[in-house]
């Protein structure tokens, strides 16, 4: 089944770049392009894509505002935020606005396709920076004895979580541990499940509780 994607970015060159990346991937098809947030919302309502990829800073409506509108008016459509800001506050703001994930532009070439698939599976996409923030915070709390892990991690998972906390990307971790990229992704997914951070709402709740983000 082909995933129909709407693309919104006010910068034409970026839009066509993203389009090329997505269309090179079998199973993804760009069905509409918008150059601002309001147009993205309108097109989403008329075209009904499966997924809307929104640039965070756009004229008329920002990406976050557009995501909020879309999740309110066209609830079936998943959204992804594309952003320049390597800042977990934006990430949580995106989740609160109803987005399924947050992709950094500086890593878009590697992460975007993966994020699209994650969004369609109904999983939050965590970019490397925010994962290390979350995991680092979690490890710190465990050290202080604030909360015990729900399930014991395997030694391999512990190796992976340490590297995640240090801010390494999945690809770097794969190279470091001499395992495949897919295996790292599976470990990462398992770790997040075990830490109770698999689901978007769950993660937002955790972040608020941990004081990573203000409610």
């Amino acid at each position: 089944m082909t995933v129909r994607v709407l693309l919104a970015d006010d910068h034409t060159l970026v839009r066509s770049g993203v389009r090329r990346i997505l269309e090179a991937e079998p199973g993804l098809e760009v069905v509409a392009e918008a150059s601002d947030g309001a147009e993205a919302v309108e097109l989403t309502r008329s075209v009904r894509p499966d997924l809307a990829v929104l640039d965070v800073s756009m004229p008329r409506l920002t990406g976050l505002q557009a995501a909020r509108e879309i999740s309110r008016r066209v609830p079936g459509v998943r959204t992804l935020i594309l952003s320049m800001h390597d800042n977990e506050q934006y990430f949580f703001a995106a989740l609160k606005a109803g987005a399924s994930g947050y992709v950094l532009k500086s890593a878009a070439d590697e992460d975007l396709v993966e994020a699209c698939h994650a969004a369609m599976r109904g999983e939050p996409f965590l970019y490397a920076g925010v994962t290390s923030t979350l995991v680092g915070d979690f490890l710190e709390r465990m050290r202080r004895g604030d909360s015990a892990p729900r399930a014991v991690l395997t030694p391999r998972e512990e190796e992976v979580i340490k590297l995640i906390a240090e801010g390494h990307t999945s690809r770097q971790i794969a190279a470091e541990l001499v395992i495949s990229h897919k295996t790292v992704e599976r470990h990462r997914a398992n770790i997040l499940t075990k830490l109770g951070m698999r689901d978007r709402t769950e993660m937002t709740r955790y972040a608020i509780r941990a004081g990573l983000v203000e409610p």
């Binding site: 060159l13 970026v14 770049g17 993203v18 990346i21 500086s106």
Partner: peptide, 14 residues
């Protein structure tokens, strides 16, 4: 600059 570099990055990937 940021957007152009993003476009370059995506283009290189492609």
């Amino acid at each position: 600059v940021g957007q152009s570099l993003t476009a370059v990055l995506l283009g290189l990937r492609h």
